[in-house]
Simulated scan of single mutants.
Amino acid sequence: MALQIGDKILNFKAKDSYGNDFDSHDVVGIKPLVIYFYPKDNTPGCTAQACSFRGQYEDFTDQGAEVIGISSDSVASHQKFSNQYKLPFILLSDFDKKIRTLFGVPPSYFGLIPGRVTYVVDKGGIIQMVFDSKKATKHIEAALEVVKNLKTNK
Rank of each mutant, 00 (worst) to 15 (best):
T152V: 11
G124R: 06
F89H: 10
N83P: 00
E58V: 13
K31S: 14
P39R: 04
V75E: 06
Q128C: 05
E66S: 15
S74K: 06
E145W: 00
E141N: 10
N11W: 02
S108Q: 15
I5Y: 03
C46Q: 02
M129D: 05
L102I: 03
A50K: 03
S17C: 08
L150G: 10
G111A: 09
H25T: 15
P88T: 09
S71G: 12
S133R: 05
S17N: 10
L150D: 07
G115M: 04
T61M: 07
Y18A: 06
I140T: 13
F110E: 10
G69K: 02
V146L: 01
I30D: 15
V121F: 01
N153K: 14
E66G: 08
I90Q: 09
M1P: 09
T47R: 08
M1H: 11
Q4P: 00
Q84R: 13
F12C: 07
K80A: 13
K154S: 14
E58A: 11
K15R: 13
G115F: 10
A76G: 08
M129H: 11
I90M: 13
F110T: 05
I127L: 03
L10K: 13
A136V: 03
G19P: 02
F22S: 09
A136I: 01
P32E: 03
K148S: 15
R100M: 13
L33K: 05
Y119K: 02
F60K: 03
K154V: 11
A48G: 06
P114Y: 07
F22Y: 10
K31T: 12
D62W: 00
V75A: 06
I70D: 00
K98Y: 05
G124A: 13
T152E: 14
D132I: 03
H139M: 03
P44G: 06
H139D: 04
I140C: 12
D21V: 09
D23I: 08
A65H: 00
V146F: 00
L33R: 06
F81W: 07
D7E: 08
G115K: 02
K31E: 11
F95D: 11
T152M: 06
V27D: 05
L92M: 11
C51E: 10
A50Y: 01
D21M: 09
K40S: 09
D122R: 00
S52I: 04
V146S: 01
Q84P: 00
S93D: 04
I70F: 07
I68W: 01
H78I: 11
F53D: 00
Y36W: 12
D26Y: 04
F12N: 08
G124T: 11
Y57H: 15
K138G: 05
L91S: 09
F37C: 01
A136R: 01
D94V: 08
D59M: 08
V117A: 02
T101N: 12
I5T: 10
N149E: 13
F22C: 13
F60D: 02
S52E: 14
E145D: 14
Q84V: 07
P32T: 05
S133I: 04
A136W: 01
G124C: 06
A143G: 06
S93M: 04
C51F: 11
V121A: 02
S74G: 12
F95K: 12
I126G: 00
S24N: 11
Q79G: 14
S72C: 10
K97E: 14
I127Y: 03
C51Q: 14
L91D: 04
N153Q: 15
V130W: 09
N42T: 07
Q63V: 04
K31C: 15
I140V: 15
Y57I: 08
K123A: 12
I90W: 00
V67E: 01
P107I: 03
I30A: 14
